[in-house]
């Protein structure tokens, strides 16, 4: 009965129902993409994009256009800049990413303190799903659905691109197009998650579900399912928890997700720490 109340009681508040739906949706989008990003080794790229969107949000408010457009342009622009600097200098990728994304992020901070607007920097950084406006929900839905559709249509090619880009080339596929496709949906996902977890913790939703799934399965299709279940449940439960315990929503989601990860790391049947100890020890 207590559990039942815990679940049902908050549903009388419209804002909370909205928040639960939105974060579940965002959790799903991130979970799907997460499988590709972790396998491709692009976690750092996700982190870079999430920080690079800040000036885009500010500029979008100043120009009075939807925040998603500004965020996408700057997020994607940062990846293009990273690609350009990397192929035209002898720097390693991690250094290039570090330089570019902090540059974008700093520019955002400068702009947000200079351009008069009613943007709450705290909300960009840490999310504000409990207070999300209808306009922002629509933008989240558009960005998230576009991502899901693109991945649904191109999932096999993208998987091939992650696994063996050389073979993709050998059979005449345009790997350049796939590279930018994956980057664009990554940027779109960050945009979708902006309102839920905020840019600081987007990276958690982009990396952790895929990592949990990778520890639990060695079939990509199962990975997708496991990733989605862990991510969506963390998002929903985290939103509940943030209401009941009056804590940050993004924070609660990420803490839960991290706990799931720790559980997977320890107890995974094949790749868990316990199992590996037994195999080596026996």
């Amino acid at each position: 009965m207590v559990v039942w109340n815990w679940i049902v009681e908050p549903l009388q508040y419209g804002f909370l129902v909205k928040a639960i739906w939105v974060s579940a949706f965002v959790g799903l989008v991130c979970a799907v993409l997460s499988c590709y990003i972790t396998l491709k080794g692009w976690s750092l790229m996700g982190d870079a994009i999430s920080h690079a969107v800040v000036p885009g949000v500010v500029v979008a408010y100043a120009l009075n256009i939807p925040f998603a457009i500004g965020a996408f342009v700057f997020g994607f622009g940062a990846t293009v800049a990273i690609g350009y600097v990397k192929s035209n200098t002898r720097l390693k990728e991690d250094a290039v990413i570090g330089v570019i994304f902090t540059g974008f992020f700093a520019l955002g901070l400068v702009l947000v303190t200079k351009i008069p607007s009613n943007i709450d920097l705290f909300h960009i950084l840490f999310g504000n799903v409990l207070g999300i406006s209808t306009g922002d929900i629509i933008q989240t839905l558009i960005a998230g659905c576009t991502t899901l559709i693109v991945i649904l249509l191109r999932r096999r090619d993208l998987l091939l691109f992650c696994f063996d880009p050389n073979h993709a080339k050998a059979i005449g596929l345009n790997t350049q197009v796939m590279y930018y496709t994956l980057l664009s949906v990554l940027a779109l996902t960050v945009v979708a998650a902006l309102q839920t977890t905020g840019i600081i913790m987007v990276i958690s939703l982009l990396v952790t579900p895929g990592s949990i799934a990778y520890l639990l399965s060695d079939r990509f299709d199962y990975m997708l399912v496991i990733s989605a279940i862990s991510s969506v449940s963390a998002c929903v439960l985290g939103t509940y928890a943030s209401y009941h315990f009056d804590v940050s929503t993004g924070g609660a989601i990420v803490v839960l997700l991290t706990l799931f990860f720790v559980a997977a790391m320890v107890f995974a049947p094949k790749y868990g720490i316990l199992r590996q100890k037994r195999v080596v020890g026996s």
Partner: peptide, 18 residues
């Protein structure tokens, strides 16, 4: 990448994508 979550059958099938 030998740790990639993919089966032998799926790898061979990738030869047919073109």
């Amino acid at each position: 990448d030998w740790n990639f979550p993919i089966s032998v059958f799926d790898v061979v099938m990738m030869g047919r994508y073109g």
